[in-house]
Amino acid sequence: MLKIHQLHKSYAIGDSSLHVLKGIDLNVEEGEMVAIMGSSGSGKSTLLNIIGMLDEADSGEYILDELPIKNLTEKKAAVYRNKFLGFIFQSFNLINYKTALENVALPLYYQGLKRKERQEKAMFHLGKVGLADWAKHLPKELSGGQKQRVAIARALAANPKLLLADEPTGALDTKTSYDIMAFIQQLNDEGKTILMVTHEEDIANMCKRIVRLRDGVIMEDKKVNQVRAEQYV
């Protein structure tokens, strides 16, 4: 699914530069569910953003679904983001003047689907996250968990191969977090590849593999026995 080799990334801060990723090697196969962990500032988000083509690495190799990601035009990148990738953010990033349904339908708009088709698909995905009744509501009328589920529905709408989530449960309480995790696990069961950044060990243990970053390199990379979230729900 994706291959990363000797990936480097630094940020310029004033005159000096901050070397955040110092040679990352990572392979992820289709159908995996990987948790990326590490202390704050260890570069988890940076890595995820590069994988999601929201950011660019300074050097190193990154191949996504056989396609080397290097010096893509922004237009091409947009197409890949649209077709291959689904994003789930910690702060949901819903567009606040659009209803839940419109938010979910937005990636389909950029796919060029017809309005009716968009509405149907979006409705289907909203139903999947259990929010069919909330389709006409604005984000501000939804709870945090509901917002995150709308965001998940949106990430799923374009049927991406790879789902990227940066602390998807970071803004939610434990119970809601497990709700969301149960849902993400279900998606993984259905075959979606999932990469998520998290701080919480219990959440990480609900994945199938944990990658730990420290000082810009991968310190540990191990498979785990997945803890099912349903049992807590």
């Binding site: 999601g52 929201l54 922004e74 237009k75 947009a78 197409v79 983001r81 649209n82 077709k83 994003f87 990033n93 567009i95 937005l106 990636p107 950029y110 796919q111 949106r154 374009a158």
Partner: peptide
């Protein structure tokens, strides 16, 4: 800018 960022993450091209 933030909204545009979201749209781009969802696959909007700069031209669009």
């Amino acid at each position: 800018t933030k909204e545009i960022g979201v749209r781009r993450a969802l696959g909007a091209t700069p031209f669009e």
